[in-house]
């Protein structure tokens, strides 16, 4: 694309405009565009060469509702589409005040994520892989995508929802704008999607995981989620994460901390004990287990874990102050 642009500029630069465009210039212009067409949909190309087994048969999530957009309000319409599919009854009109900025005639990505959380769903941003994104659709999840329908320099931002694909025909199916079933060539979609930085989001009901979840990304999204949706939904999300990554430090700490916040000390302790069986050198888990053990009235365990944390990382101020606090509580208790 860049190459095509620079050739175009050269071709149309003032020095050349008084002459007729030379044959060579035309040829190079055409070649540049051909080149751009070849290289600007690399993911479609590689899918075309070898269709991954999970994507071999066509998919059409025909029961995904359609909310035709009003004016420039593709953001609220697309968000309502994915939320309703997750059994959240909400209309685009209700979402307008939450995600639409009239002066910019559009919606910010970050507000789309925040609104998703507000309706009790975890907004998980996918990796940017076309294959992984389509596999979410194949797994029954409509995917909210951002596109730039214009050029990088003159952007025209747009939100749509991917609801199907047919790779043998190299097509993708969207709920887009005012068209219920917008079927477009996959290569063209990829170009418009790449210009929006391959932004794609699934709304996860607590307990659900994407097909290709990244441990750190999932951890961060659930941590965002639990700030406004603590309690049972957060606990369910952490448990699902721990099921996918059974010895994950991040999932164990997230779950244990949320259980602690809910006052469920026995289970908060159990989660960390389980982790330490497989990962005995994780100082932060020892540190937290010391505090939980204090809550449970087990001062022997509290002292043991506080000491272990300091042994593992003597430079950590947090761990040292934990040990001091545990020691002073034990001595004042006796």
């Amino acid at each position: 694309m860049l190459r095509a642009g620079s050739v175009l500029q050269r071709v149309l630069s003032p020095e050349l405009t008084d002459h007729a465009l030379s044959f060579r210039a035309w040829i190079s212009l055409v070649m540049a565009f051909t080149l751009a067409a070849c290289v600007s949909s690399p993911q479609t190309e590689s899918l075309h060469h070898a269709i991954p087994a999970p994507l071999s048969s066509p998919v059409n999530l025909s029961d995904v509702a359609f909310f035709p957009q009003a004016d420039y309000q593709c953001g609220p319409a697309a968000l309502a589409t994915v939320l309703n599919y997750s059994a959240v009854a909400v209309t685009p009109d209700e979402l307008v005040p939450q995600v639409y900025i009239p002066a910019r005639r559009g919606s910010l990505q970050i507000e789309m994520l925040a609104a998703t959380r507000r309706y009790g769903q975890i907004a998980y941003v996918l990796s940017g892989s076309l294959s992984e994104m389509l596999q979410e659709v194949g797994n029954g999840k409509p995917v909210l995508v951002m596109q730039n329908l214009g050029l990088s320099r003159w952007p025209q931002w747009h939100y749509a929802v991917v609801v199907g694909y047919d790779l043998t025909r190299s097509e993708i199916r969207l709920r887009s704008g005012t068209i219920r079933d917008y079927v477009m060539p996959l290569a063209l979609f990829e170009k418009t999607w790449a210009r929006a930085d391959h932004w794609a989001v699934v709304a996860l009901t607590p307990g659900e995981l994407p097909v290709h979840a990244d441990e750190i990304a999932y951890f961060q999204r659930v941590a965002d989620f639990e700030q406004s949706q603590s309690g049972e939904p957060a606990i369910r999300s952490w448990r699902a994460g721990l099921q996918r990554w059974p010895v994950s430090r991040l999932m164990s700490m997230g779950l244990s901390n949320q259980l602690y916040a809910q006052g469920n000390m026995p289970e908060a302790a159990q989660v960390l004990q389980q982790l330490l069986l497989a990962d005995a050198g994780f100082a932060s888990a020892h540190n937290n287990l010391a505090w939980i053990s204090l809550e449970l009235g087990d001062s022997v365990a509290a002292l043991h874990h506080a000491q272990r944390a300091v042994e593992l990382d003597a430079d950590d101020d947090n761990f040292r102050s934990t040990l001091q606090a545990v020691q002073s509580k034990i001595s004042s208790g006796k």
Partner: peptide, 22 residues
């Protein structure tokens, strides 16, 4: 009622781990 128990300052919080992972 959101969080019944506020964690003591000495505990490693989830938000702290988020910062580290970033």
């Amino acid at each position: 009622q959101p969080s019944a128990y506020a964690a003591p300052a000495g505990m490693v919080s989830t938000q702290q781990l988020v910062q580290e992972s970033r």
